[in-house]
Amino acid sequence: MVKIRALGWIAEKLGFREREIHLDKPVKIIDFLPLLNEISEEHLIILVNNEPADKNTIIKNEDKIVLMPVVSGG
Protein backbone atom coordinates (compact mmCIF):
# COMPACT_ATOMS: atom_id res chain seq x y z
CA MET A 1 0.00 0.00 0.00
CA VAL A 2 1.06 3.59 -0.61
CA LYS A 3 0.41 5.87 2.36
CA ILE A 4 -0.49 9.45 1.45
CA ARG A 5 -0.79 12.41 3.80
CA ALA A 6 -1.97 15.81 2.67
CA LEU A 7 -1.71 18.95 4.77
CA GLY A 8 -3.44 22.32 4.97
CA TRP A 9 -5.13 23.73 1.92
CA ILE A 10 -3.60 21.04 -0.27
CA ALA A 11 -5.70 18.52 1.68
CA GLU A 12 -8.80 20.64 1.09
CA LYS A 13 -8.09 20.71 -2.62
CA LEU A 14 -7.53 16.96 -2.84
CA GLY A 15 -10.45 16.14 -0.56
CA PHE A 16 -8.56 14.00 1.95
CA ARG A 17 -5.97 14.29 4.73
CA GLU A 18 -4.90 10.66 4.80
CA ARG A 19 -5.36 7.87 2.30
CA GLU A 20 -3.90 4.48 1.46
CA ILE A 21 -3.95 3.06 -2.04
CA HIS A 22 -2.70 -0.11 -3.69
CA LEU A 23 -0.73 0.14 -6.93
CA ASP A 24 -0.55 -2.71 -9.39
CA LYS A 25 2.71 -1.36 -10.75
CA PRO A 26 5.00 1.63 -10.12
CA VAL A 27 3.50 4.85 -11.54
CA LYS A 28 4.02 8.61 -11.37
CA ILE A 29 2.32 10.49 -8.55
CA ILE A 30 0.39 12.61 -11.03
CA ASP A 31 -1.08 9.45 -12.61
CA PHE A 32 -3.08 8.56 -9.52
CA LEU A 33 -3.54 12.10 -8.14
CA PRO A 34 -4.59 14.06 -11.26
CA LEU A 35 -6.01 16.88 -9.09
CA LEU A 36 -2.40 17.91 -8.44
CA ASN A 37 -2.46 19.33 -11.98
CA GLU A 38 -4.55 22.15 -10.52
CA ILE A 39 -1.86 23.07 -7.99
CA SER A 40 1.18 24.96 -9.16
CA GLU A 41 4.62 23.57 -8.27
CA GLU A 42 5.45 26.85 -6.55
CA HIS A 43 2.74 26.20 -3.98
CA LEU A 44 3.47 22.53 -3.37
CA ILE A 45 6.05 20.48 -1.50
CA ILE A 46 6.11 16.76 -2.15
CA LEU A 47 8.13 14.39 -0.01
CA VAL A 48 8.47 10.70 -0.78
CA ASN A 49 9.94 8.72 2.10
CA ASN A 50 11.08 12.03 3.61
CA GLU A 51 13.04 13.03 0.48
CA PRO A 52 12.10 15.93 -1.85
CA ALA A 53 10.15 14.72 -4.89
CA ASP A 54 7.87 16.08 -7.62
CA LYS A 55 4.64 15.20 -9.41
CA ASN A 56 6.50 12.91 -11.81
CA THR A 57 8.31 10.86 -9.17
CA ILE A 58 7.67 7.14 -9.64
CA ILE A 59 5.86 5.56 -6.71
CA LYS A 60 5.64 1.93 -5.66
CA ASN A 61 3.76 0.17 -2.89
CA GLU A 62 5.16 0.80 0.63
CA ASP A 63 6.20 4.35 -0.29
CA LYS A 64 5.06 7.16 1.98
CA ILE A 65 4.01 10.41 0.30
CA VAL A 66 3.46 13.75 2.00
CA LEU A 67 1.85 16.61 0.07
CA MET A 68 2.02 19.96 1.74
CA PRO A 69 1.73 23.65 1.03
CA VAL A 70 4.69 26.00 0.95
CA VAL A 71 4.04 27.82 4.19
CA SER A 72 6.31 30.57 5.31
CA GLY A 73 6.20 30.46 9.03
CA GLY A 74 4.56 33.80 9.70
Binding site: G8, W9, E12, I39, S40, G73
Partner: peptide
Amino acid sequence: PQYDFWMRQGTMA
Protein backbone atom coordinates in the same frame (compact mmCIF):
# COMPACT_ATOMS: atom_id res chain seq x y z
CA PRO B 1 -5.70 29.41 -4.13
CA GLN B 2 -4.97 29.13 -0.41
CA TYR B 3 -6.93 32.26 0.56
CA ASP B 4 -10.06 30.53 1.92
CA PHE B 5 -8.05 28.09 3.99
CA TRP B 6 -5.83 30.88 5.27
CA MET B 7 -8.93 32.76 6.45
CA ARG B 8 -9.98 29.65 8.36
CA GLN B 9 -6.72 28.74 10.05
CA GLY B 10 -4.14 31.47 9.37
CA THR B 11 -0.75 30.62 10.82
CA MET B 12 -2.33 27.89 13.00
CA ALA B 13 -2.12 25.50 10.03
